[in-house]
Design a protein around this nucleic acid. Structure first.
Lengths: 344, 344
DNA sequence: TTGTATGCGTTATCAA
DNA sequence: TTGATAACGCATACAA
């Protein structure tokens, strides 16, 4: 009879109320038995669990989140989703978040700050309880939205001078600088640098800066002809070699700070019959499996990709669940490591 | 005054009600102006939009979804998140879903059917309006949950004989068979097959089956010593060659139906000084960029990875938004293509 | 330890 | 075209 008063037709599935009726208890008891089992007697707990199974109840997290104003989703925005460099970080994030019952929402900004802004708004609209951004550059409105919403955020791809909130990364600048210095110490004098396009890419820009800083420290003046910007991929690495060699034939080292560029460069050198590293050294920026298996194996930087995801999730959860281990402004530098192999 | 009656402290941000007050209209008018602008007069629409901007309102999708019992999230479950073969599909999904305002939630099952079941439950708990599964094997409970919830589902990694609902894929069996036949027609007689572990992996199993079927069609009896199962990665490909060659020295072709295995195999052959394809042919299963750039370039299968994601999203949206283009039981075979290169 | 009343922020429904 | 009201399914606050 009461039911008839409703002006809306129910479309959903089984509700907590159905479980409550089945178990002969109130919905609050069901709610507690499921969310805070300790606050319910042994007997009730069992009765509720049985009823849940009998009626095939799946809690409605939308309702739970709305009512408690706490959600269990986290949003991740990466520049490009079809980029294997994110997969390890994604895995670290996913493993840790899932262990606490959180779900990951993912989107790509296409290296476009205004698209990132839209995605931030979209995620806030979804009421995510945390955000992970692979950028450190954001539009003013994106910053304002995040500040106003008050959600914890972790920036990932680089160490931000002015963090939005928290950050976990290595320093692109320091990494590029370290490898360049390493090459310098090995005796290479004409060190070329192949970078990914730096437009709307703070990581690329910082790497170029690090390279320049190293040269300066080595007492050299950076030669613009030794710096090329290109896209991702093997073909780009090869093409970068072609361009540099044309301009500066005496180049003796090639540092590729981008995805798989180094392998493309290596193949190109081999095609020319150049012995690596005798004629020209090659170094890379990220320890993808391939670099260890080509011949000669490529000297590179090991970046803490998985750890970044893992730590990011931990920091986010700490703030969301108020374990209060991490504070606003925490910036964690997970460092990098030079892996010396045969190519340099 | 009315406000004081509340026993709950508001924690959230700006609500539709705030916009309504600002604009001097009811919340319903705001709701309509935002969700169904056509149902509102020109003037109202503008007034509402202005108020939205003035107060900095972001709709609450949790509330919207709860109230309308329609969500704008889709759940994706892949066996392993750190696997580059999914990135293209993920991109296709993401692009199409985002164009309609849908968000993607992603999780990994670790090739464990029971974990997949848990994730299905978790996503249903989140009230996703669609599911994408990369498996075609599911637990009974997972199937029951999905059926009961009535959400549209697309299966992706393979063509399911008994689809849960819809499916978009190519046929792993046919693809492996086609390449094996291709090698047979090229004159290779002792064709080895390196597969990823087939346990809980229907794709791998179907590929092995396809390989066997092709041999039978070629009038050969499959030799178990020519089949190896291994894990992903370059090292595994090399090791697979070692194992097979030890057992069957006269092997003359190596078909690698797994991620990057073929390149590992190629490197191992070259290490042994074997000329490819003169001494031994090599073929692969998926057209990753690398295969085209190694020397000799590797003959492989082109799989419609991006298209699978794109089409999957379209089918899902069709059902969710009731454009009713795709029906239950739709199984779309996006086919594959043999890319003939130098290695075979 | 359990239950009652109420609200979370939105939309469905019906009336004006 | 607009508004009032009652849900959506759950958790908070408080009473018993």
């Amino acid at each position: 009879m009461e039911e008839e008063r409703s002006s809306r037709r129910r479309t959903g599935g089984i509700r907590m109320r159905d479980v409550a009726e089945r178990a002969g208890v109130s919905t609050m008891t069901v709610s507690r038995a499921l969310s805070e089992p300790a606050k319910v007697s042994q007997e009730m707990r069992e009765r509720v669990i049985r009823a849940v199974e009998e009626v095939g109840y799946l809690p409605n997290l939308l309702a739970r989140s709305l009512s408690s104003s706490r959600s269990t989703t986290v949003g991740l925005i990466v520049p490009s989703i079809d980029n294997s460099i994110y997969t390890q970080t994604l895995k670290g994030l996913s493993v840790v978040l899932r262990s606490r019952g959180f779900q990951l929402m993912i989107a790509e900004s296409g290296y476009d700050p205004s698209e990132e802004e839209d995605l931030v708004a979209a995620f806030l609209t979804q009421r995510v309880s945390g955000l992970v951004l692979h950028n450190i550059e954001h539009t003013d409105r994106a910053r304002a939205l995040i500040r106003q919403a008050g959600v914890p955020v972790v920036e990932n791809g680089n160490l931000p001078p002015e963090p939005l909130d928290m950050a976990v990364s290595y320093s692109n600048r320091e990494a590029a600088k370290a490898m360049t210095l390493h090459l310098g110490r090995l005796g290479y004098r004409k060190i070329a640098f192949a970078s990914l396009f730096a437009h709307n890419n703070d990581r690329s820009r910082d790497r170029i800066e690090g390279y320049r800083a190293a040269l300066t420290e080595l007492g050299q003046t950076p030669d613009p002809r030794l710096i090329v910007e290109t896209s991702r991929g093997l073909a780009s690495g090869a093409e970068a070699v072609v361009r540099v060699v044309q301009a500066v034939p005496e180049v003796d080292a090639f540092f590729c700070a981008g995805d798989v560029l180094a392998v493309g460069a290596l193949f190109e050198c081999q095609k020319r019959g150049w012995v690596v590293p005798r004629r020209i050294a090659i170094a890379s920026f990220d320890d993808v499996d391939l670099l260890r298996h080509v011949s000669p194996a490529v000297t590179t930087l090991r970046l803490p990709r998985y750890g970044i995801g893992e730590r990011t999730a931990q920091m986010l959860l700490g703030r969301i669940l108020d374990d209060a281990e991490y504070l606003r402004g925490s910036v964690v530098d997970l460092k990098f490591e030079i892996i010396q192999r045969e190519s340099a």
